[in-house]
Simulated scan of single mutants.
Amino acid sequence: MDGARRAVVACVESPGGKPMSIARRTALTAALAIAAPAVRAQTRTWPNRPVRIIIPYAPGGPVEIPGRFIAEHLSARLGLPVIVETRPGAGGAVGTKQVIAATDQHTLAMVTGAVAIQPAVQPDIGYDPVTELLPVSLVSTASMGFMVRPNAAFRDLQGLIAAAKAAPGRLTYGSSGNGTTTHMAAALFGARAGITWQHVPYRGGGQLISGFLAGDVDVMSGDLATLLPHVQEGRGLLLGVTAPERVPVLPDVPSIAEVVPGTGITIWFALFAPRNFPEDAVARIVAELAPLRSGSALGERMAATGGQLLLTGPAELAEQLRREMPLWRQVVAEAGIRPE
Rank of each mutant, 00 (worst) to 15 (best):
M1Q: 07
A7M: 07
S14W: 09
P15G: 14
G17R: 08
K18Q: 13
A23G: 03
A27I: 13
T29W: 13
L32G: 14
A33W: 09
A33I: 12
I34M: 13
A38W: 09
R40K: 05
P47K: 12
P47N: 04
A58G: 08
R68H: 09
F69T: 07
A71V: 10
E72T: 13
R77K: 06
L80P: 08
L80V: 14
V82W: 12
V82H: 02
P88H: 05
G91M: 07
G92V: 06
V94C: 04
G95S: 03
K97H: 02
K97C: 10
A102V: 10
A102R: 12
L108Y: 04
A114V: 04
V115H: 10
A116V: 13
P119H: 15
P123F: 07
I125P: 03
V136L: 04
S137G: 09
V139A: 07
M147Q: 00
M147S: 05
L160Y: 06
A162K: 09
A164I: 01
S176E: 00
M184L: 10
Q198R: 15
V200H: 11
P201F: 02
Q207V: 03
F212L: 07
A214K: 11
G234V: 04
L238F: 11
V241W: 10
A243S: 13
P244Y: 04
P244E: 01
V247N: 07
V249E: 10
V259S: 03
V259E: 09
G262A: 06
P274K: 10
D280E: 07
A287I: 13
L289N: 13
G295K: 11
A297W: 11
A304P: 10
G306S: 15
P314K: 12
L317S: 04
A318K: 07
R323G: 14
P326Y: 01
R329F: 01
Q330T: 07
V331Y: 01
E334I: 00
E334M: 00
I337G: 00
I337Q: 01
